[in-house]
């Protein structure tokens, strides 16, 4: 609970509350919602990549699985959206646990390759199981509702995802300074050293992998209801790379950094959207400059510079 009243979290809450007054139209709210949803996934991925140092470029697969769990369960079997979301998250957790056991034995590039493979497999399953998923053209998904109450309109969606984003930030900050978080950061530095210090390395890796998959699954379920349409391209290679980019650009291991990363990766293409085809050039340039001049990510680099000046 204490984390909620940290000044940094209070500022985020304040900003999220004030933003609606600055929204000129519903489309900008839509962008904000997409940023929040991406931010939740990125915070989850940051637990795995930033804290524990295990690079995954297949994380969009978990987003897609969450989305399709909600889509298939609500449309084909008539489950209530909240129940479907919960079952989806549990299912993804179980899958992540089973997958994590073998693939987290791999290290560095081989682990990255394995997560990439996972993404491709999920994508292929979604494309080919036409009877359930609607195949490459995707499927329509109903709105989010609890009983007879339907979550409608951009502003109510914004309120929901903003609250969830704050919750995700708090969970992540809590974990960062908890014993488990320290253990994760220790195994990021050196697995051997961590093991010598009594950290159960395989167990921690699996647990953080499962946790980050659950973040992705829940955000995926919400994305499905919000967009009201999903396709297998959710699990594609590019979405996974975008997620990894959010973590790297914003700042590895920095919770606020990855939220900033989500703002940039989701928001910049919209800002540059008017340049007709050139938006990718600007986007690429922005990313390159960040990585060249701030290799640790934007937020940690600024924090470091600030700390230096003070001393």
């Amino acid at each position: 609970m204490k984390t909620f009243i940290r000044p940094s979290v209070l500022i985020v809450i304040f900003v999220l509350c004030m933003l609606p007054f600055a929204f000129p139209n519903a489309y900008i709210v839509d962008v904000a919602i997409r940023i929040c949803l991406a931010g939740i996934v990125a915070i989850g991925l940051n637990l795995l990549m930033g804290f524990a140092g295990q690079v995954s470029i297949g994380h969009a697969a978990f987003v897609a699985l969450g989305a399709y769990a909600s889509g298939v369960a609500t449309i084909r079997y008539g489950w209530s959206p909240l129940f479907a979301l919960a079952v989806g998250a549990v299912g993804v957790a179980v899958l992540a646990y089973l997958v994590a056991k073998p693939i987290l034995r791999l290290r560095d590039h081989t682990l990255t390759m394995a997560t990439l493979g996972l993404g491709i497999i999920v994508h292929m399953v979604l494309v080919n199981e036409v009877a359930w998923t609607g195949g490459p053209d995707g499927m329509a998904v109903g709105p989010m509702k609890i009983g007879d109450w339907v979550l409608k309109g951009e502003m109510s969606w914004y309120a929901l995802v903003a609250c969830l984003l704050v919750l995700a930030i708090v969970i992540s900050l809590n974990l960062f300074s908890s014993p488990a978080g320290r253990a994760l950061r220790a195994l990021h530095g050196s697995e051997v050293a961590a093991a010598v210090m009594g950290v159960n390395v395989p167990s921690f890796k699996v647990r953080v992998f499962v946790l980050s998959a659950v973040f992705a699954s829940i955000a995926g379920s919400l994305t499905a209801h919000y967009n009201s349409f999903i396709t297998p391209s959710l699990a594609g290679f590019m979405p996974s790379v975008e997620l990894a980019t959010m973590v790297v650009v914003g700042g590895m291991a920095s919770t606020f950094g990855v939220v900033l990363g989500a703002c940039l990766v989701v928001g910049l293409p919209q800002v540059f959207g008017g340049f007709e085809g050139f938006e990718m050039v600007f986007f690429g340039l922005a990313l390159m400059l960040t990585v060249i001049f701030m290799p640790k990510g934007i937020v940690p680099s600024f924090a470091q510079r600030f700390a230096k000046r003070k001393s």
Binding site: R6, P7, S8, V9, I11, V12, V15, L19, A22, F23, P24, N25, Y27, I28, V31, A32, I35, S254, F256, G257, V259, L260, C263, L264, G267, L268, Q270, V271, G273, I298, V299, F302, A303, F306, A307, K310
Partner: peptide
Amino acid sequence: KIINLLRSSTVSMMLLTGLYSAGP
């Protein structure tokens, strides 16, 4: 605390500038 403050204010600034520039 100050670093955290700085962090969050950067976040909010980016959020605002990012969202404003696409006005109608």
